[in-house]
């Protein structure tokens, strides 16, 4: 009995040590960025883990030094794109998910198959073609670029309906039927019954589509090309690490990274639950 107990304690200690070591490994880069963002010495090459002296100048420079890399401008650009693409995508995703979950129509199955097949194509394959198409309608010049990006981010949104559809599937259909007997139209059922019951998934959809423009960088780069005025935050941060800027901007990059990570981290931690539910809904099938 006693030996079994010591064995258990020993196992417990080992497990906790392993977890602690792993947690340190996983958190190390994050601590490192936070420390770098407060570091007073310039440049990307350091000899110590902890900075020699601390400063807030990096954050200040990010918002005041607008001559080469205009961070405030990039921030507003991204904010505008994020707000509009989030409205459009949320509308698309929710309406498509509702139709597929609740209504039966002829191209329902074909649509779901089409979404699956399109998902197998590498997304970057058609990127050049999207650029040509947007160019042909004149959306790739100057101040129309944000519009082009909004369309890019929200245009394909309706193909990732699975999580929202999984959620709608869990709402009992008898509620809809009762409302229909009382004379509701499908539209009224959608807006007055399903949507109010789906607060979590609406929040989830809004947040994910709001975050996308902040973290996407490939599409933004291809569409913006050399139009520095229209850069989004992600391209700006990428630029700061290029050879000609890295010496002066490295610590500012860390500051910018911390700034956009904080809100996203908070959002992510809060909606973790929906993320898991949505995915495991798919796995349980």
């Amino acid at each position: 009995m006693n030996s079994a107990k010591t064995k258990r304690t020993r196992n417990n200690v080992i497990v906790h040590i392993i977890l602690a070591v792993l947690a340190v490994i996983w958190l190390f880069p994050i601590f490192w960025v936070i420390l770098t963002s407060f570091r007073a010495e310039k440049g990307s090459y350091v000899s110590t883990f902890f900075p020699k002296s601390y400063t807030l100048a990096n954050y200040k420079k990010l918002f005041t030094d607008t001559t080469i890399l205009n961070f405030p401008r990039m921030f507003t650009n991204t904010l505008i794109i994020a707000v509009f693409s989030c409205i459009l995508s949320t509308f698309f995703v929710l309406s498509v998910a509702y139709c597929l979950s609740r209504l039966r129509f002829k191209f329902r199955k074909p649509y779901m198959n089409m979404a699956m097949i399109l998902g197998l194509f590498p997304g970057f394959m058609s990127m050049v073609a999207v650029y040509f198409i947007l160019k042909a309608v004149g959306l790739t010049e100057g101040s129309l670029i944000p519009l082009a990006l909004i369309l890019c981010y929200s245009g394909g949104a309706a193909l990732s309906f699975q999580i929202a559809k999984g959620f709608f599937d869990t709402i009992p259909i008898s509620i809809d039927e009762a409302a229909m007997i009382d004379g509701c139209t499908h539209w009224q059922v959608f807006t007055k019954i399903t949507l109010p019951l789906s607060r979590p998934i609406i929040i989830y959809t809004i947040l994910t589509s709001f975050i996308a423009p902040w973290v996407d960088f490939i599409f933004a780069k291809v569409i913006c090309r050399a139009n520095a005025d229209q850069y989004t935050v992600a391209i700006g941060l990428w630029k700061m690490l290029e050879k000609e800027y890295i010496d002066n901007w490295y610590t500012c990059f860390a500051a910018g990274a911390v700034l956009i990570s904080i809100p996203i981290a908070i959002l992510f931690l809060r909606m973790q639950k929906y993320y898991v539910d949505g995915l495991s809904g798919g796995v349980k099938g």
């Binding site: 996983w26 958190l27 880069p29 994050i30 960025v33 975050i211 902040w214 973290v215 960088f217 992600a234 941060l237 990428w238 990274a257 956009i260 990570s261 996203i264 981290a265 908070i266 992510f268 931690l269």
Partner: peptide, 9 residues
């Protein structure tokens, strides 16, 4: 926490 930080960052 580490997957809450944007992947490209």
């Amino acid at each position: 926490l580490s997957c809450a930080v944007p992947m490209f960052v």
